[in-house]
Design a protein around this nucleic acid. Structure first.
Lengths: 241, 241
DNA sequence: TAATATAATTAGGTTAACTTAACTAAGGAG
DNA sequence: CTCCTTAGTTAAGTTAACCTAATTATATTA
């Protein structure tokens, strides 16, 4: 991947975003505003402004106001959006104190990949479109954070529902099936190899692919594809879900 | 807060962590190993080693192996743990591609506050101690990511369960009560003010405190405390949960 | 054991992001 | 209109984190 010519450093990103934010609050932006906002001295601001001007992100006349170009607005908006969303995720979902969420968002916005950022947005979206508005599990999480244990009603479910499903060897499942690991019928190296791969009791898995001759079997565990030989899959007893 | 004397820069953190990781793989660590691992040139490594030596984090004799001091081990372990956990969160929970999760974790580990990091750990822990192993909502999230909509069974619940609860004014709730917003019985400025504060239909809230005279009322919405006057709270119709 | 290859170091340079100190421009107040 | 304050700029310096080129130490092998 050719590195984006338009990419700017974290520091320049901060300046650009700050110009955008200040402008929303008080219409005009000056060197001193930026200096105060970013807690730096005026000459640092001036130097950065020269760089941003070179990159056609701002317009700034001698001793005058600072204005964003269209390109600058686009970039700044994107950065600000990133900032807002990350803060939202940290504060409103993970429940981090607002000030700290603000600080953290301010830092990591410069380093998160597009993929992760988009996934975070999806996560926020997933929660906000929840029919119950605030999903039960999230409240359970807050309870968990506060009391260091799950709420009592959160434990009960499991026991009742696990004996009505079929118990089979992992090797007998069809593609697409989800199952929960019950047991590994092997001691020794094979068992510890499987444990190392994440095949622990209670773990949910899904059969992704099975090669023509029934081996290897591609198993999805915790978002990771693992390839098992048939001999190995036979040692894993699962409950079909 | 006096800035921690023991704090080191992100770059130094990277070097320290890398020494730890390389040492686990091949017992001995040399300048060239670090240079290759971090994709920098040898003189850069040498310079950093001098700094780490000054801070008593490593021992390094002329042309010899690099060893961590006890202090260095502690620090490096903490950093590595942070790295591993963040990657786990991104990859195994948010479902980000492993390589990208690795890169992102590598960057943001230097910038996340202690609070947020600990909360992320709690989140992982919350999911891993779930009795169903892989909670249903998380699978719903993966479905949501893949198909851009919630799974069909995820919509049904809500409609059935919402009419059996009491419908009252927010101002009539007791401290500690949770409720879902049904309606705001006001148009005009007050309504838009409330909407701006997050009082939207479907939103869950909790009464945190009520002042002696019944006003103001401290309401918790999305982890944020909002103070409402009684007149305002009377305009909000909620369903008690 | 001397020759040679490889690894580590030193010396000196670059760039980004800051600083202080000194200077200049612009906008009132008297 | 001049003086003065405040804001902005320029010049020159610092530090961290990299680099290249040259030098020195260690290891390998003929």
């Amino acid at each position: 991947m050719v590195n984006n010519v338009l990419a700017i450093s974290p520091s320049l990103e901060d300046y650009l975003e700050s110009i955008f934010v200040i402008k929303q609050k008080k219409q005009t932006v000056r060197v001193k505003d930026l200096a105060r906002y970013l807690k730096v001295k005026a000459p640092s601001v001036v130097e950065v402004l020269r760089k941003l001007k070179e990159k056609n992100l701002i317009v700034h006349e001698y001793y005058g106001y600072i204005e964003l170009t269209q390109e600058g607005i686009n970039k700044a908006k994107a950065l600000y959006e990133k900032h807002v969303m990350l803060k939202k995720f940290l504060h409103q979902i993970l429940g981090i104190d607002e000030k700290i969420a603000e600080q953290d968002a301010c830092k990591i916005e410069h380093y998160l990949s597009k993929e992760t950022f988009e996934r975070v947005i999806k996560f926020i979206n997933f929660i906000e479109t929840c029919p119950q508005s605030e999903p039960e599990w999230l409240n359970n999480f807050y309870y968990f954070v506060k009391h260091k244990k799950r709420p009592p009603e959160c434990k009960a479910k499991f026991l009742g529902q696990n004996s009505q499903n079929k118990t089979v060897k992992l090797s007998n499942l069809k593609v697409g099936t989800k199952a929960r690991i019950l047991k590994i019928t092997d001691t020794g190296i094979l068992k510890s190899k499987l444990l190392g791969l994440g095949f622990v009791k209670g773990q949910i898995l899904k059969i992704e692919k099975i090669a023509p001759l029934g081996s290897p079997i591609d198993v999805l565990i915790k978002n990771t594809h693992i390839s098992l030989r048939k001999e190995e899959a036979e040692k894993v007893i699962v409950e079909v879900l």
